[in-house]
């Protein structure tokens, strides 16, 4: 138990900080994914074949390829891509993007693919009358999407977004391969120093369990709060 205490002798404070890092990466990735999906969902719902094709390619790739592979792509390819762009503007030094950015972007891309599917499903399940009603009131397309459709879509997709959040939270453990000090990486370091992997990985599992349980409770509350029939 001493190994988990706070202060210089234990790893408690380090793991505490690492937990915040996990939460931070998960939040950034989830919202980044949400942002992406806002741009991809219209592509998937569009009547134009080409746009459809683009949207489908994105979701197929990022839902079908392992998370680790995506992380390696961005980890090894990220800085050279940034340097390539920087070179065009005449900057020739070596640029290293940090692990936090690499991690949240790669997990965000994956999370975005799942969020896209969730939102698309929710939009398709909305009664056609809502669209027609909004149109007949003379509202512009952007206006009725934002004020009429979006609130309903969000309400309908809370349970599935909860699943995507859980997935994203668990995927953040994989970012540890890039060296970002979150729960998994900190446990790796601690178990290397103390030679007690069983304790630290079990404790890491316990921390993740707490995070997933709390967020599940929160999403259930959210669902209950907004689950009213008009």
């Amino acid at each position: 138990m001493e190994l988990l205490s706070f202060g210089d002798t234990g790893w408690g404070d380090e793991l505490f900080k690492a937990t915040f890092m996990t939460i931070l990466v998960a939040l950034v990735a989830f919202f980044f994914g949400f942002l992406i999906s806002i741009f991809i969902v219209p592509l998937k719902l569009s009547n134009k074949k080409l746009l459809n094709y683009l949207g489908n390619t994105y979701t197929t790739i990022f839902r079908g390829v392992p998370e680790l592979l995506v992380i390696y792509l961005l980890f090894f390819g990220g800085s050279s891509a940034v340097m390539f762009v920087a070179k065009i503007f005449g900057y020739k030094e070596f640029i290293e993007i940090n692990a936090f950015l690499t991690g949240s972007i790669s997990i965000g891309l994956i999370s975005g693919a799942y969020t896209t599917e969730v939102l698309r499903g929710a939009i398709e399940s909305i009664n056609k009358g809502q669209f027609e009603g909004a149109k007949s009131l003379g509202l512009k397309k952007t206006t009725y999407y934002v004020f009429v459709i979006a609130p309903q879509v969000l309400r309908l997709s809370i349970p599935n977004l909860s699943n995507v959040w859980q997935l994203t939270l668990k995927d953040t453990a994989l970012i540890s391969v890039t060296g970002l000090v979150e729960i998994m990486r900190q446990s790796y370091i601690a178990s290397g120093v103390t030679r007690n992997p069983l304790l630290f990985y079990s404790f890491a599992a316990f921390l993740y369990l707490i995070l997933t349980t709390i967020s599940l409770k929160y999403f259930n509350q959210l669902e209950k709060k907004y689950n009213h029939q008009p």
């Binding site: 668990k170 995927d171 998994m184 990985y201």
Partner: peptide, 9 residues
């Protein structure tokens, strides 16, 4: 819990 933690345990 993540599969990553399970396999390490």
């Amino acid at each position: 819990t993540p599969l990553f933690v399970q396999i390490f345990i």
